[in-house]
Design a binder for these strands. Structure first.
Lengths: 168, 168
DNA sequence: TATTATTCAGACAAACTTGTCCGTTTATAT
DNA sequence: ATATAAACGGACAAGTTTGTCTGAATAATA
């Protein structure tokens, strides 16, 4: 039962809007939320389906499918199986991986290497004027995503202390 | 002397690339660099032209023009004057404003209010599993951009301690 | 064996960002 | 006055991200 265009695209905005960006791309946001849900609900025997995942994290189903394909790429984060009782699951080892490993698969860990002013040549020797101060904040960000494991986040959600859906 | 397509567009990439995002949009990166340069080189009597700015910060000229229009919108950050000896300049008061004011004009200050996992309803009462830890990092980011003034960054560049161009 | 339920793979479409161009307006300089 | 040199404003083009759809492959079940 595939959903049929339930969410029409919004109105186009003016040219000069330059709208705000979140920290990560939508794809990465969905990826993290999906991985948390899969960690929560699956193990080597119990799988979860694309539809369950998309419903649980309130994400567009087909787009989420693409992301899950990417995440299951090297079978290091999530594992997929096809066919009638197919679905996605995570091993205990995978659940213990840091959130950073999701960012890496999504190719978004480079965020932490880039110059905040967009200079290709920005470095310790030839820094942009924000470089040194920004470095500290960047280290905190990296530490945060390196330290937190997927299992830890899943446990919080399991305990009812936090949430991974936009739904009320 | 308008530059003619010196920088052809790159090759198209595969669909599933999900490329990495920097902290800010290109527009905002150029905006910050432009404002630093204008602070450096201008005052109420001495103006700088679009061409000088784009050359100095190594940014696409016409795109930069759009950004400067936006920045001069309320005449609170940069001021523009038309005609033969026209150009852009900043007052001393404007130079003392924090970098955050540039982000505000570019509409990118919302970055600091958004949930890192993209949840609309994420809040203290109903947090996402990264919420509390991420809050601390966010505060550091906000503090950084609130504390640093445009004049401070311009002074660093003036002193030759840092740079705002990608050119070697 | 046929049906069913799942992921997979690719094409496509919509929206947004980035970048380019051109004609107009404005003010100075000749 | 006229030419010149600058910003302004709108249209347009290229590229990326987000989202949708359809058919194929796969594996279990009836």
């Amino acid at each position: 039962m595939k959903q049929k265009n339930l969410r029409p695209f919004g109105q186009q905005r003016e040219y000069t809007t330059f709208d705000t960006e979140p920290m990560f791309s939508k794809a990465t946001e969905y990826a993290i939320r999906a991985v948390i849900f899969i960690a929560q609900k699956s193990n080597s025997e119990t799988k979860v389906s694309l539809q369950e995942i998309a419903a649980a994290i309130d994400s567009p189903e087909f787009f989420t499918a693409k992301i899950l394909q990417k995440l299951s790429g090297k079978n290091v984060l999530i594992t997929s199986s096809r066919g009638r009782t197919g679905g996605f699951f995570m091993t205990d080892a995978a659940k213990k991986r840091p959130v950073m490993s999701v960012l890496e698969v999504m190719g978004e860990d480079e965020l932490f290497n880039k110059c905040v002013l967009g200079l290709d040549k920005c470095s310790e020797l030839k820094p942009c004027p924000m470089h040194h101060q920004y470095k500290t904040v960047k280290k905190n960000l990296i530490a945060l995503f390196e330290r937190k494991t997927i299992a830890q986040l899943a446990a919080e959600v399991n305990a009812g202390n936090s949430f991974i859906s936009s739904e009320s």
